[in-house]
Design a protein around this nucleic acid. Structure first.
Lengths: 161, 161
DNA sequence: GCTTGCGTTCGAGCGCGCTCGAACTCCTAG
DNA sequence: CTAGGAGTTCGAGCGCGCTCGAACGCAAGC
């Protein structure tokens, strides 16, 4: 839910810019969790549209460290939420958990690993681009098939308000 | 089948994206229907960039029926290859095997099921569009991160007109 | 006090989509 | 005649990414 919100905001923002992505736009994306300072697992789960189970799982496998409050409950600070936003973004674009673990390990090792992290990101960017190509191709194939079945144009795409 | 149509549509959609893979695949795709008539499992596997194991698996779960030659070897005709091309295209865009089985079942039931198949395709088109949005967002996030790490623009993208 | 509800830890289980190995058959080249 | 390579069937196994259930803790409200 909250992620849908995030999504629509981000997409709206993306629509505004029709050139290279502005850094500021992305900043808004990343800063989502900045309003509240400490969040419960349920709140974070809701924000990121994932289950508390998965959040615990991510912690268990070392993707994030999460502080506890007085009664032992997880307490997510802004920094942690930001990392989770990034991680889920990478997951959504198909980066393997294994690779995220590697990345996080590097990040925790300090600034010396920036070049290596950069490499990983550059590589992942290529992966995303390949996926975009594949998806575009699949979209074309699907629309072709739809056309042969006499399907109509469908929502959006052309008639954008 | 008007694979040429598909190709031109796909290429039009892809005009911005270069890359060895997609275009070449389409080319091979077109050559297939036209050139060879019967193919071995190894040829099909090579064409579709998948393993013979997977091809047998697809047959086993009912996605395709494949004829045998005199000595019991699989012999893929153009029609079957076309179906496989379609199926792999759908797989590449994330359609579940389960859904493909459903689709194929409908296809085998005849023209009465065209409306339902159309529905499935329209739904899948939306799925692809959502994925495109997600991926675009992830690409933006990745480029933002790359920028913060002082990464160069890399091939195409930022500096592109 | 007692229930309700959200949280905790731990380990096990699951669905997906392949992927593989074993044992066998067949065709062809040397 | 033999060896090699590509094919066959069958069932089992695997890696991934969660997902779940059980047993428990704690704080608030009736």
């Amino acid at each position: 839910m909250a992620t849908d919100d995030l999504m629509s905001r981000a997409l709206a923002a993306l629509d505004e810019v029709d050139g290279p992505m502005s850094v500021e736009v992305i900043h808004r994306l990343v800063d989502v969790g900045a309003a509240t300072d400490l969040m419960t697992i349920a709140e974070v789960a809701d924000l990121l549209d994932m289950s508390p189970h998965t959040l615990r799982y991510y912690e268990r496998i070392g993707l994030v460290e999460v502080a506890r409050d007085a009664s032992g409950h997880r307490s997510y600070d802004a920094e942690t939420v930001r990392r989770l936003v990034f991680l889920t973004r990478m997951r959504l674009s198909g980066m393997a958990i294994r690779d995220l673990q590697h990345y996080v390990r590097l990040a925790d090792e300090g600034d010396d690993t920036v070049p290596e992290r950069l490499d990983l990101l550059l590589e992942h960017r290529e992966t995303i681009r390949r996926q975009l190509k594949e998806l575009t191709l699949s979209l074309a194939a699907t629309e072709y098939k739809i056309a042969t079945y006499g399907g109509h144009a469908g929502p959006s795409s052309a008639g954008k308000a």
